[in-house]
Write a protein that binds this DNA or RNA. Structure first.
Length: 700
DNA sequence: TGTAAGACTTGGAATAATCTTC
DNA sequence: GAAGATTATTCCAAGTCTTACA
C-alpha cells in the first residue's frame, strides 16, 4: 500500500535523514517516536482496510452512466432539536425574554456578535427582518422595533461561558463525547456500494442558522431554516432497506436512481439551492472521477500545442465573436482564470473570464491590469504583459463596452466557449486548463528546485512547498493572514538569533584548540559552513543591547522554572539548593538590568555574560558535535522562517487537493526517498489511493 | 436559442486534533 | 502539563458544466 519506499527497516517515519544526537535530542526522540508510532498505526489501518483496487480494472468502454448497482445506507443524521436557555436580550436596556423559536433565531445572531458577520450591515438587516417577521407571527407582543436598540450581549456572554465550560470538561466527559461520535460515525458514516463498505461524506443534515454568504452577498444573514425529513429525498438501491425517518415523520421521497451518486438530497430555503449527501472523498466513486479528471488534463497535453496555435491565430480573426473567444481562451490558458458563468442579482457580484466587465481591466505601461473579485469574493489582481494582439483586442473590447457595468466579452458566453473547446478535444472545457496548467507547472517547478536525494528533509520540504506555492499563486488561492502573524514571525526570528549567537560562541571557544592539530586532523573539524550559518542577519544584527535582553530572558525563564519546581515538588532535601540557585539567578538578573541601564552612558564594548551561561571548553569532539547540533537547528529554523513568510497569504491546500495530479507527488517522493506522509496527511492518502502506485518515472 | 434545474467540483473559514514550547 | 501554534478535517458556500425543457 505504501509506495514511498520507506520500508519498516528504516530508522524512523522520515527515513534515515534525521540525525539523532544526545541530550537536546532526547525530547525530540520521544516526540518523533510518538509520531513514528502514529504513522505506523495509520499505515496499518490503511493496509487493513479491505481494499478494492478499482483502478486496476478500469475499462474504458464501460457504461459510465450507471454509477452503482447496489446501494444500502442508513440515511441522514438530523441535528438535535432546539433546547431553550431562557437568557434574555436587552431592548433599550430592558430585559426581553423570548419564546423558543425566536430565542433560537436571536441566538444565531448573538453567537456571531464579535465576528465580521455580526458587524456586517447587510447581515444585520437581513437577520433583523427575519426576526421582525417571526415576531409578527407570534401571539406575544414584543417591544422590539429597531436593531440599534437591541443589546445581544447577555446571550453572547452566556454562549461564551458555555464554550469555556466545554473546554473545562473532564477527561471522562470528553472521552464519552468522542465515543458517541464514533458510534454515530459507525452507523451513518458507511454505506454498501456494489458489495463493498464505503465511507459516506456529509451525512449530517445542515443545522439551522443564519446564512453566511461570502463577500457582499445580498442574502447574507437570512434565516436558514431547520430541515425536516419531509423535505428530504433518499436515493437508495431498490432491494435495500429504507432507513427509518425520525419518529412521527416520513421522507419526502425515496428514489432508486442509479445514474447519480448522491444518497440524499434536499432544497435549502435561502437560495433555493439543492444540497446533497455524497460519498467521502476517499470512496471509489469519487476516486474514479478524480482519476478521470487528471487523465483528461493529461489528454489536453497532447492537444495543447495545436489548441494554442488555433487560438493565437484566431486573435486577429475578422470575426468579432471569434476574436473574443480566442482572447478569452488566451486568458484562461495563460492566467488560469475560471470560465465565468453569468450570475443573478441575488448573489455576490463576482466574475470570471467571460463575465469580466469594463471596469475590471485597465492598461498601464503597456501592460494589462486585471483587478476583480473572483470566486468567494477573493480579489484577483495581476499586472501582466500579454501578446500584442491580446492587448489590442482587450483595448477594443473595452472601448466597445463603453461604460462600467458592461461586459468585456459581450459576444460570447461559457456555454459557447465550452462547446468550441469540446470540438477541439472531446470532453474539453475551460476548467480542464486550470487542472492541466496547475499540474504541469507543479511538475516543472519541482524539477527546477535545487535539491538532490542527499538533501535534508527540511530542504526537500521547502522545495516541494515552493513548487506547490507557484501553483497556488497561479490559481490565486489566497487566505487571510493569521492574526498575530508578525508576532509569530519575529518570535521565530528571535529564536534564530539566539541559535546563531550560541553557535558563534561555541565556534570561538573551539577554534583556539584546533591550532595545535595536524593539517589532516584540522580538516576533520571544518568550521567554515558553521561560521557561514551563524553570520548575522544584516536586518537584525546582534547588538550588546540585544544580548542583554537575551540573557535577561534566559534568566527570567530559569527563575520561573525554579519557582514552579519549588512550588510543586520541593522536598526538604532539595529546597535549600533551589533557594540558593534562585538567589544567584535573581542577583544575576539585577546585575544584568543595571548593566543594561548603564549601556547608554558608557560605551563599554564587552557585554557582561552571567556566570551560569559562560562556556567552558571540554573536548574538541564534544564541542564540535554541539556546533553541529546548533547548525542543524539553525538551518531548520531558517527554512521554517522563509517557508512561513512565503506562505503568509497563500493557501497551498486547495491546489494540492484539487489541481495537482497526486501521482507527481508520489513519484517525486519515491525518487527522493522521502515518505509521501510528509506531504499527504491521512485523508489525502485515502483520497489518492489510486495514485500511490505511481512509479518514480511517472510524468504528468 | 435561452433558461432553469440538477449534479458535481472547488474553495476559504471554522473547528478539532496534534505538536511544540515553556 | 498547560498554553499557544500548527496542521488536519469538517463544513457548507460558490463555482462549473451538462441536460432538460420551452
Amino acid at each position: 500500500m505504501n509506495g514511498s519506499g520507506n520500508g519498516n527497516g528504516k530508522e524512523n517515519g522520515y527515513g534515515k535523514r534525521v540525525k539523532v544526537e544526545s541530550e537536546v535530542a532526547r525530547k525530540k526522540i520521544k516526540t518523533e517516536g510518538e509520531k513514528k508510532r502514529r504513522v505506523k498505526r495509520e499505515q496499518k489501518e490503511e493496509e487493513e482496510a479491505e481494499e478494492y483496487e478499482w483502478w486496476r480494472d478500469q475499462n474504458g468502454d464501460k457504461d459510465d452512466t450507471i454509477r452503482w448497482t447496489q446501494l444500502e445506507h442508513q440515511g441522514v443524521l438530523f441535528p438535535p432539536e432546539y433546547v431553550p436557555h431562557g437568557v434574555p436580550i436587552l431592548y433599550d436596556g430592558e430585559k426581553v425574554y423570548l419564546e423558543p423559536e425566536i430565542e433560537e433565531l436571536v441566538g444565531f445572531f448573538a453567537a456571531l456578535l464579535e465576528t465580521e458577520h455580526g458587524a456586517n450591515p447587510t447581515f444585520q438587516r437581513n437577520f433583523f427582518n427575519e426576526l421582525k417577521l417571526l415576531m409578527s407571527k407570534s401571539k406575544r407582543k414584543y417591544p422590539i422595533k429597531e436593531f440599534s436598540r437591541c443589546d445581544f450581549r447577555p446571550m453572547y456572554e452566556y454562549f461564551q461561558k458555555q464554550k469555556e465550560e466545554k473546554k473545562q470538561m473532564s477527561k471522562e466527559e470528553k472521552a464519552a463525547l468522542l465515543e458517541e461520535r464514533k458510534m454515530i460515525e459507525e452507523k451513518y458514516g458507511y454505506c454498501i456500494l456494489d458489495g463493498r463498505r464505503e465511507k459516506v461524506g456529509n451525512f449530517r443534515i445542515e443545522p439551522p442558522g443564519l446564512f453566511r454568504g461570502r463577500g457582499a452577498h445580498p442574502k447574507t444573514g437570512c434565516y436558514k431554516r431547520r430541515v425536516r425529513a419531509e423535505q428530504i429525498t433518499i436515493n437508495i438501491g431498490k432491494d435495500a432497506k429504507i432507513p427509518e425517518p425520525p419518529k412521527g415523520s416520513k421522507w419526502g421521497n425515496v428514489i432508486h436512481d442509479q445514474t447519480v451518486t448522491w444518497l440524499a438530497m434536499w432544497k435549502e430555503n435561502v437560495n433555493d439551492n439543492t444540497k446533497y449527501v455524497f460519498l467521502a472523498a476517499g470512496s471509489s466513486l469519487k476516486g474514479q472521477s478524480d482519476l478521470k479528471k487528471y487523465e483528461k488534463a493529461r489528454e489536453l497535453k497532447k492537444h495543447i500545442v495545436r489548441i494554442r496555435k488555433d487560438y493565437m491565430a484566431a486573435l486577429t480573426s475578422s470575426d468579432g465573436k471569434t476574436r473574443q473567444r480566442a482572447t478569452a481562451l488566451y486568458l484562461i490558458d495563460r492566467f488560469a482564470l475560471r470560465a465565468g458563468n453569468e450570475k443573478g442579482d441575488d448573489q455576490a457580484d463576482t466574475v470570471g473570464c467571460c463575465s469580466l466587465r469594463y471596469e475590471h481591466v485597465t492598461f498601464e505601461d503597456g501592460k494589462v491590469v486585471f483587478d476583480f473579485l473572483g470566486k468567494d469574493s477573493i480579489r484577483y489582481y495581476n499586472k501582466v504583459e500579454v501578446h500584442p494582439a491580446v492587448y489590442r483586442n482587450l483595448v477594443s473590447f473595452q472601448r466597445a463596452a463603453k461604460t462600467p457595468g458592461n461586459l468585456l466579452f459581450s459576444l460570447i458566453n461559457t456555454v459557447e466557449l465550452n462547446k468550441h473547446l469540446s470540438s477541439l478535444m472531446p470532453g474539453l472545457s475551460a476548467k480542464v486548463f486550470r487542472t492541466y496548467n496547475a499540474s504541469h507547472t507543479f511538475q516543472q517547478e519541482l524539477e527546477k528546485q535545487d535539491v538532490t536525494p542527499a538533501s535534508s528533509i527540511h530542504e526537500l520540504t521547502l522545495a516541494y512547498n515552493r513548487a506547490n506555492r507557484q501553483v497556488a499563486v497561479l490559481c490565486n488561492h489566497q487566505r487571510a493572514v493569521a492574526k498575530n502573524f508578525s508576532g509569530q514571525l519575529s518570535k521565530i526570528a528571535d529564536r534564530l538569533m539566539g541559535l546563531r549567537y550560541e553557535c558563534r560562541r561555541h565556534i570561538d571557544l573551539l577554534k583556539p584548540n584546533l591550532t595545535d592539530l595536524s593539517l589532516a586532523d584540522r580538516a576533520k573539524y571544518d568550521l567554515a559552513p558553521f561560521e557561514q550559518a551563524c553570520r548575522d542577519d544584516p536586518d537584525r544584527p546582534i547588538t550588546t543591547e540585544w544580548l542583554y535582553s537575551y540573557f535577561a530572558d534566559l534568566l527570567t525563564k530559569d527563575i520561573e522554572r525554579l519557582e514552579k519546581k519549588k512550588a510543586s515538588d520541593a522536598t526538604q532535601s532539595n529546597l535549600d539548593s533551589i533557594e540558593e540557585k534562585l538567589a544567584s539567578l535573581s542577583s544575576e538578573l539585577s546585575t544584568l538590568n543595571s548593566k543594561k541601564e548603564a549601556l547608554s552612558s558608557s560605551k563599554s564594548s564587552k557585554p557582561y555574560i552571567p556566570e551560569m551561561y559562560r562556556l567552558t571548553f571540554n573536548s574538541i569532539d564534544k564541542s564540535f558535535s554541539t556546533i553541529q547540533r546548533l547548525y542543524t537547528r539553525i538551518v531548520a529554523t531558517k527554512t521554517a522562517l522563509v517557508d512561513k513568510d512565503e506562505n503568509k497569504t497563500t493557501a497551498l491546500g486547495t491546489s494540492k487537493i484539487n489541481y495537482i495530479d497526486p501521482r507527481i507527488t508520489v513519484s517525486w517522493c519515491k525518487k527522493f526517498d522521502i515518505p509521501v506522509e510528509k506531504f499527504f496527511p491521512k485523508t489525502l492518502r485515502e483520497k489518492f489511493k489510486w495514485a500511490m502506485h505511481a512509479d518514480k518515472n511517472f510524468k504528468f
